[in-house]
Each structure stands twice: as C-alpha cells, then as structure tokens.
Design a protein around this nucleic acid. Sequence first.
DNA 1: GTCTATAGTGGGATAGAC
DNA 2: GTCTATCCCACTATAGAC
Lengths: 189, 189
Amino acid sequence: MKTITRKEEIIEVAALLFKEKGYSAVSMRDIAAKLNMKAASLYNHIHSKEEILAVLILEVAEAFTQGMETVQNSEISSLDKVVLLIEQHIEITLKHARAMAALNNDWVHLRVDNRNEFVLKRDAYEMNFRKIIQKGISKNEFKPLHPELILFSILSTLRNLHLWHEKRGKLEVNVLKKEMTAVLINGIV
Amino acid sequence: MKTITRKEEIIEVAALLFKEKGYSAVSMRDIAAKLNMKAASLYNHIHSKEEILAVLILEVAEAFTQGMETVQNSEISSLDKVVLLIEQHIEITLKHARAMAALNNDWVHLRVDNRNEFVLKRDAYEMNFRKIIQKGISKNEFKPLHPELILFSILSTLRNLHLWHEKRGKLEVNVLKKEMTAVLINGIV
DNA sequence: GTCTATAGTGGGATAGAC
DNA sequence: GTCTATCCCACTATAGAC
C-alpha cells in the first residue's frame, strides 16, 4: 500500500497541467483549483512553483542517467546497447508519462542551479549515446551515416513517445518495444 | 530586393523569443526591447500578442497542407510519396525555422478560431500521411508494422529537426535530405 | 510611428486567524 | 493544513501627446 502525500498529489496535478499548457501558462491558482484548495495552501507543502518543476524534471533526468550507466557497464555489442537504451527509454516514458512534457519543453524555466544540473545530465546522456553509435559505426554494426543524425532520429522519436502514447498508443509494452526497436533500427521497408 | 516591414520584423523577433522560452513566458516588453522600442509601440503594427502567434503558425500549417496536396496528386508509389513528404518537410523546416517551435508547442495558446483552423489542418495532414502508409503496407512496400507507429516515428523526427539543425546540423540540404530519408526508411543497420 | 502614462487584470508569495 | 486578505509586481492593451 503506497500512500500518496499531499506534496506528491500537488506535483502530479501540476504535471498534468504543465503538459497541457506549459509551465508558464499554469498558475498556482490553477493547480490549487484542481485540488479544490486555495493557492495559498499549496505553500504548506512546497516552497515555490519552481520547486514543483524541479522535482518533476530532476527525478526523470536521474532515471535516464542511471539507465545509461547500466548500459555502459554491460559487455554487449553496440547494437545491443542501442536496443537496450530504446527499451529503457520506453519504460521510463511509461512510468513518468506526466513529466515528459516538462522534461522536453519546460526545463528552461528552472532556476539556474537546477537548470545547470539538468543540462549537465542531459548532455552527458547524449554524449554517451553518441559514443556508442560511433563505436557501432567503426565496427560496421551500423551504416556509415553521420552519428549525429542517427542519434537525433532515435532520440526525437523516443522523446515524443509520451505525446503519441496517450493519443493512439496503448499498445502492450512488449509489442511497443519490439516494433519501436524494429522501426528505429531496421527502418520501414 | 525584398523590403521587410516593421510588422514582419516584430513577428521574426517574437518567433525567436517564443522558441527560447515559449509563448507564455515572452512578454510584449521582451519583444519590444529586442527591437529597441516600447511595448506600446508594437500595437501600431499588430493587434495583439496572439496575432503574432497566429501569423507564425497558420502560415507554416498552410505550407504543409499545400505540400500534402501536391504529393497526393502525383502518381507515384507509396514509398516515393513518403520520400517526397520527408524532403518537403525538411525544406519547410529550413525555410520557416523560427516558427517550428511555436508550431509544435504553442498552438494551444491560439484563440479558439485560429486554434480550430490549425488543428483541422494538422489532423488532415496526419490522416493523409497515415493513408499513404496504410496503402504502402497493403501493397507490401512497407513492413507490416502498426501504421500509427511508422507515422509517429517519421513525424516526431521531422518535427524536431529545427532543434537539432541549429545545434549540430548545418549539413548541406541535399546531404541532409538523403541521409534523413535513408535513416527513416531503411534504418541504421 | 513612437512615446509616457495608466487602466485593468492576474501572477507568485506571505501573514496570520482558525 | 486550509483559509481570507493582501502585498507587490508584471502582464496586455489603450489613450492621447508629440
């Protein structure tokens, strides 16, 4: 039995609203209204609007960082590493569905310190992903395309998964993983 | 010699700022400051902040709609249609680079009438794209994957091209078209 | 066409009663 | 832990002088 605190409730509701309208367009009054309370009462549970955003974003960023470490430490081919990263990305997206929009768009509104922490993590993740692709190319596991283009194509698809999954998706997780990997790795023809 | 009006100048600067912080986080003061003027003066050229957003978004939406018509009217295979759509998407992205962020994220802040117009166009575009994919699958030009997943994978990559192109890109257009098509159609292995 | 001044609204956040 | 009341500030937009 997992009990959910008021603070978690606030963050959850806020994430939903951020997803719909973006961080800046959501007011503390909006968040409070969805919880049938007044804006002032929110401040008994959180310190600021920005804190909500920071919790949301940094939690997921940490999950990605952890995942990348696991993958790097496993001794498998570059191709298998990429497959693993794709599957992991799907898992994290499904688990933190509500936070993904903030992660993609609203991180710019973090306070400097939190923003720096996030950007460092994100850049490190991308760099490590790029290295795996480069190694794969040099070992002839991947086609000799620009690594940046491969990285970009995979990441932009995965980073928007949350948009699509709620609208059409609801594919069973394993089917989703399988087909997504197939499309990203082997193409569509 | 193309002369640029003050109105166009305002829209251009606004687009840049919207891209950085999102529509809601950009104030008329911000826009004015970048043009060395006062916010009040903007209103001699535009009627409202929302008008700027509407011009930006609806112009690009129209370009996509036109492009889709051209493709539909050409008598080529489904595969060639998809290739054409990808190339077109790249061209439009490069031409309207500054508007792409608003198109992806800020359309929610359009007034109802403009928002409806946009959503209709976008949905029609996606529906037509989906039909092309479905036909391609039924003719064995594409693998028998979920059409939604193929559509999503292609579109999310293309819709984020603007993010990547400014950061790393600057590939020559034809190289970009060629490699992007290769990745999206044939995969990376 | 740009300015100053300002109206009118709504934002984040705090104080203090209950 | 929630409320009312309120502070102070920033926002969009308008009026009217130059």
